[in-house]
Design a protein around this nucleic acid. Sequence first.
DNA 1: TATAGAGTTGCATGCGAATGCAATATGAGA
DNA 2: TCTCATATTGCATTCGCATGCAACTCTATA
Lengths: 339, 339
Amino acid sequence: MGEKITSLDVARLAGVSQSAVSRVFTPGASASKKTIEKVRRAAAELGYRPNVLARAMVSGKSRMIGLVVAYLENYFYPEVVEKLSKALQEQGYHVLIFMASQTAENIDDVVEEILDYQVDGIVAASVAMGSELSARCRAAGVPVVLLNRTQDDERLSAVTSDNVAGGRKVAEYLVAGGHERIGYIAGWEGASTQRDREFGLRVGLEMAGKSLYAREVGDFREARAQEAARRMFAGRDRPDAVFAANDHMAFVVMDVLRYELGLSVPGDVSVIGYDDVPIAAWPAYDLTTVRQSATRMVAETVSILMDLIENPSADPRRIAIDAPFKERGSARKPGRQGQ
Amino acid sequence: MGEKITSLDVARLAGVSQSAVSRVFTPGASASKKTIEKVRRAAAELGYRPNVLARAMVSGKSRMIGLVVAYLENYFYPEVVEKLSKALQEQGYHVLIFMASQTAENIDDVVEEILDYQVDGIVAASVAMGSELSARCRAAGVPVVLLNRTQDDERLSAVTSDNVAGGRKVAEYLVAGGHERIGYIAGWEGASTQRDREFGLRVGLEMAGKSLYAREVGDFREARAQEAARRMFAGRDRPDAVFAANDHMAFVVMDVLRYELGLSVPGDVSVIGYDDVPIAAWPAYDLTTVRQSATRMVAETVSILMDLIENPSADPRRIAIDAPFKERGSARKPGRQGQ
DNA sequence: TATAGAGTTGCATGCGAATGCAATATGAGA
DNA sequence: TCTCATATTGCATTCGCATGCAACTCTATA
């Protein structure tokens, strides 16, 4: 066991030089029909396949993309992982995955580790990068694309949905539905998605001459969202509508309302989320939400990444894809004349 | 941009040889305090970090583990990905992820690609490997561990839960609960988990002098499970209990029963799943199920993998971890004297 | 038939780090 | 202070493949 087949073995069997073998397996290199034939046959006989790592050493291209994810608990991210991985596979790239702890600082260590693997690019999903770190990536010539998060640093590419517009749509819908006391369950305050969605919501409310009635922080985490919901609905004059900064928290909120407090959704309280993860469509939740298409976001991410890899001097791009409102049954619907 | 720092740069700055630098960064190599100090200082100054790929070339160890997953739609797998990735990171390994199409054949291509990256080991979650392929891995000296799936090939290591026992527990619980017409929503027939869970269920029923009342195939897929549930409950004399081969299908079944057919769970029909994914605990489902601990399965997988990597001649191991029954509210509970 | 031009091929080298070996430095014991 | 065992160090080589360069083989044109 363990006898590696190298290009030299193939070369010997085919009666050609090692370079010839290399050229046969290098797209764009020149080789005669006869040589190709001989090499292919020998390679097949020996079961030879080029060593990607060795190839990476000399070419400087590893064809690996580092993916940093903080938590797969929010089912938007498994979707991202799956689709990103598939999309990159189609481009001949593969994904090296790194789980970052929720703790903000650790991301930097993780990125260092990623860089050690000589990845050709990095996708950072739902995590922030220190400016020092992004500088290192730039120095190393490794493009970085933030996914579902933005940062002030203009030199970082980023793909998000249009969170501000999305938040505004929620406000408009709730106002049109005649809600009076609108609460907001915030995500982790450090996240741009959180800030933007809240900002959009507030702007939308203001434009209707209203303002936020209640606000609690759920940090995008299940347990925290649960506590947040309990706090928000503890007193009397409870909100008649809640916008949760993502679907994952919206489910928790619905569960608290229905199963702990015995309230009806949307009868007593309307609930709206953000993301439109698959579960949102399940009838048990039937969650009204804002659709953030993982497919489209991944497609944009891959596109940007490929551009940046091919043309390292290209400008970073920041994209906010359209986030359509998705009406379902968890929020009271505006009357016929509404909206 | 792009000026790579190599060990040679560090060596020059520190006034030592390249080998000295290498030794400082190689655990277990010998170097004097003074040298270590000089090298560390120079490395820090230049921001040097060893190139993992170059290291892999000469050492033959890439410290990468290939992970093959078919679909993240079933939320058991995101858990696996997250925990496996973290556990391996702690061991100094990293995960190269590969999505396999559901189609059975493609897995072989994917494994070839993985091998190209010189991974030190492969974890195949919920996918089967052709015998030819596993032979190649063996020839290449790359250990393979199947996760949540077994195969006849004795030379393959595998970690599953005790699916047969789990299935039997479900049968016993349903019988104890006084159910008369027990249906089964099967998973994909090619999966060992499917076969074992069904086998356990049937054995359990037989031991109680009963047999399966209805059976439909859901293929572990959402859409198929939906159709399966509809078919199963189309006629009169419908089942009074259903065991779905995994939680993911159980949720679909519950939704069909409750929201399409207007039946009560567990009032009219008891539903039991398998896996105990996080959603099973959500009050909207409160699913009675069999607990298959991703944490424990991942721990075993890592342990086997590390053993196999350190000692390539070690025997493959096949482990079925205990799968405790988890009683919740989606199935009628046996009376006090029951069970 | 001679010959420029394009298409092939092999040689030699390099990517960045680990390691066997031999040379040297260090320290302990006498 | 001298000797020998042990710890450090550098040299040179190696991992598997890609690629610049020079030598070479064709083929088409004059």
